[in-house]
Write a protein that binds this DNA or RNA. Structure first.
Lengths: 333, 333
DNA sequence: AGGAAAGCTGTAAACGCTTGCACTTAGAGC
DNA sequence: GCTCTAAGTGCAAGCGTTTACAGCTTTCCT
């Protein structure tokens, strides 16, 4: 980076005003006489002046930048959330610094710290569970945080989710009413608050209340091959209906069953819990708990803008409506 | 953002040295006596000092931030490229500001200008075609740019791609040797340099050289439903082998054919040109021109680090090897 | 021992902007 | 005509770093 070609000072000199006035024009402060404003704007245009956001950030202590913390960019669940976030961020003129934190060289809270050092005005957090060090760092720097599509067990951070317990219960009901007797739950990370404190308890309660025998919770099923390889175990355990939290694992199970010559949904009903593109393009198409991912991202970002402006926020734990969409991987369409 | 709790000045006072020395310690400059360094480090730890990256950026004129310009976050092609970029960026301690530019409120070059105002040290560009205004802005600010998975018709910007002409020709050969007579090419954006100046000419040359009749190039096929709706037209035109640039469109064509009761690959052979996750999870699995997306991203980012350091770069137009992977959507596996 | 070189540290001027405060001017109200 | 208010503008002190430059110590040769 070489010396900046044209600064606010050049504009000021050329327009025969002070830097302060140029700054006011640039920032839309209306305490400037129209003629002065026009003159300044003309010079800005003529000189191709562009404000240096780094200097603005240092002087104003606002960077108009938010941090996005995401486990994995190539997971469509997060990609669709991010899209909602991104659109609203653009609307409010925030830039996004994105950092993914899975399988990394650096520890999660180091990555987060580096984000805070960049003086982001706020953070949207989408990973499973907020580590203590990170929570401390957020509080210490007083940075607003919104969790999108995830929860935290302390109730300190705002969040945007769906009602996971209700959604899963509804899906389990669907399977049960289809006559399935041996229902299972397949999750990625059991340490995730959404799973450990919402989905799994909801599932266990359902099994107990309906006298459906022993619960079967399969954990650590994170990608396509995990799902693919799990299928024989499901057969062995006599599972005939399953809720899978990750789309890609659902597809793994689906393909494994198909490759083994089984019939979906007759032999096994599958409900997937995310509803990314993936769920609808495979055949048979997957019945899904359709989470409004784009909207969740958008709402989270909108809430963050309020928090960053110290505006009143009436509800910091927002649950958006989901929809149970029946496709070909369950009966009774 | 409130006043920063602890600054380099506090550390200096506490450690009884000057700011300059603290700065040297922080930046790993080894012109500091060991005892002094240890004392400073101790204070840094004790006070929880973290350097303010914005102030560093202003003073040093380097932000250790790079801009990523991507059409669409939810397109796995870009997500996988981004992952490679992200990993290398982390390795070299760069943060990433990501901006997507499709269907937006703001014009592309405005978005890019806002990125430049943030004083990014470099940019990785992944969209179809670099607009003139943007190219001018990059040159004016002297910001290094690397194109990843895309090309530019002026030869001014570094790029990392595969040899699209060769890849497509090879794929067309495969289809021809399977006995297909009426080959088509389906692309998203015909204005994209990769399509307009590489894939389409390669296709047309092949058709002409092999006397395969009239060329059939279908353009503007961008998403799932575009592909789905195109299929009847392919039937009408008697197409029996097709290369599709976007995975999601390939899947649309595939499902459309299956839903119509046709057989793939017997009735239609499909080669898809990206090789994201999508191509391998659908059934029949798609034969693909497997682009090394992760590596392309990684190589692009690595090259950018060199450009940002004014290091010697021997080759600025890198073509990585691809692989033609035969799956179930073509014969002769 | 004497001088040069190398190592270590501090001073202070940037970097490009925002913003509180004070000042000027012009009009309004009387 | 005089005071008062408000709008418009400039001054200058930050914001938290980096980095020449200079100066002081050591160390190393011969």
């Amino acid at each position: 980076m070489h010396k900046q070609e044209v600064t606010i000072y050049d504009v000021a000199r050329e327009a025969k005003v002070s830097m302060a006035t140029v700054s006011r024009v640039v920032n839309g402060n209306n305490n400037v006489r129209k003629e002065t404003r026009d003159r300044v704007l003309e010079v800005i245009k003529r000189l191709h002046y562009q404000p240096n956001a780094v200097a603005q950030g240092l002087a104003s202590k606002r960077t108009t930048t938010v941090g996005l913390i995401v486990p994995d960019l190539t997971n469509l669940y997060f990609a669709e959330l991010s899209k909602g976030i991104d659109d609203i961020a653009l609307l409010y003129k925030y830039n996004i610094i994105i950092t993914s934190i899975e399988n990394r060289l650096m520890k999660e809270d180091q990555v987060i710290q580096s984000l805070l050092n960049k003086q982001v005005d706020g953070v949207i957090y989408m990973s499973n569970r907020l580590p203590n060090e990170a929570a401390e760092a957020f509080k210490r720097t007083n940075t607003p945080v919104v969790l999108a599509g995830t929860k935290d067990n302390r109730d300190e951070f705002a969040s945007v989710t769906i009602d996971y317990k209700k959604a899963d219960t509804e899906a389990l009901n669907l399977l049960m009413h289809d006559g399935k007797k041996n229902l299972a739950l397949v999750v990625g990370d059991e340490d995730a608050v959404v799973n450990g404190e919402n989905r799994i308890p909801a599932y266990k309660d359902f099994i107990k209340e309906n006298n459906l025998g022993e619960p079967h919770v399969y954990t650590g099923v994170k990608d396509y091959s995990d799902g693919y390889n799990l299928y024989p175990q499901l057969v062995k355990d006599g599972i005939d209906g399953v809720i899978v939290t990750r789309d890609i694992s659902s597809v793994g199970i689906l393909n494994s069953a198909m490759d083994a010559g089984r019939k979906i949904p007759e032999d096994l009903e599958i409900v997937t819990a995310s509803a990314t593109q993936l769920a609808s393009v495979v055949r048979p198409a997957l019945t899904t708990i359709k989470q409004p991912l784009y909207d969740m991202g958008a709402v989270a970002m909108r809430m963050l803008t309020k928090l960053m402006n110290n505006e009143e926020v009436d509800e910091t734990h927002i649950e958006l409506p989901y929809e149970l969409v029946k496709k070909q991987s369950t009966l009774n369409q």
